[in-house]
């Protein structure tokens, strides 16, 4: 099996090297996907959209990145049922690309938050991370716009269809239902505000991030 994972790079992405190195540390092969280029689907088994400030968060977080050539490829890749994970700004980009439901608003107190959080698995994703419901993991968050929002009907719809992936154990940013991550209906596209690539070894403070990469294979 091809163990290559595509990692997108936009102007302003800043977790690109961290995700790239996390993948390498697990003896998998990362491959850069430049924002201005399309890519061939046979080259990569999965795509990860790392966090950061693509286009400086201008206009809206993720809005400009969603309109780039690489995201056209990602959209098609996802429509074929292939796995796509967006982390933090990557999650915002997937929402802006209409690949995931909902939107991410500024945190309730309008401030950036950096801290470790406990997460609970609401529904397993077929591709990324642990699968057994109720399991909890500890990962760092670092975001200014992490408040997941949908209207009440939308929230009921994604809950009914099992699209809520992770929830925060504690309300840190005002997200509806304390939602930290969601999936598309098909569960091959997933978005997560916390950063698994920052929890890869004990010296980082935890190793719960590993399974988000290894579970693909």
């Amino acid at each position: 099996m091809n163990k290559t994972i595509g990692v997108t790079r936009f102007p302003g992405t800043n977790c690109d090297f961290d995700v790239f190195e996390a993948i390498q540390s697990l003896d998998l092969t990362p491959k850069w996907l430049w924002y201005g280029d399309h890519f061939s689907f046979s080259d990569v088994t999965a795509v990860i959209i790392p966090g950061g400030f693509s286009y400086g968060d201008y206009l809206r977080c993720g809005a400009l990145a969603a309109k780039t050539p690489v995201m056209n490829s990602v959209r098609e890749f996802a429509q074929r049922g292939l796995p796509v994970l967006g982390i933090c700004n990557g999650f915002q980009i997937l929402c802006e690309s209409q690949l995931l439901p909902g939107t991410l608003l500024p945190n309730r107190d309008s401030r950036f938050i950096d801290q470790w959080v406990e997460l609970k698995l609401v529904n397993g994703c077929r591709r990324f991370g642990p699968e057994s419901k109720g399991v909890s993991v500890r990962l760092p968050v670092a975001h200014g716009d992490g408040r997941f929002y949908m209207d009440a009907d939308g929230q009921k719809r994604i809950e009914d269809r099992g699209q809520v992936w992770w929830s925060y154990q504690e309300d840190i940013n005002g997200s509806i239902g304390q939602i930290a991550g969601v999936m598309n209906e098909n569960k091959n596209v997933a978005g997560l505000m916390p950063h698994p690539e920052r929890a890869m070894t004990s010296w980082m403070g935890g190793t719960d991030g590993k399974s988000f990469f290894t579970s693909l294979f």
């Binding site: 800043n14 950061g52 950036f112 950096d114 920052r198 890869m200 010296w203 980082m204």
Partner: peptide, 27 residues
């Protein structure tokens, strides 16, 4: 103060701003 700062981007942070000495791992 420090929770408003991203203390971990770059994935080298061993000890963050909550500690008396910040520690980074040389890759």
């Amino acid at each position: 103060v420090y929770r408003q700062y991203d203390q971990r981007v770059g994935a080298k942070t061993v000890r963050d701003a909550s500690e008396s000495v910040a520690v980074l791992r040389l890759p």
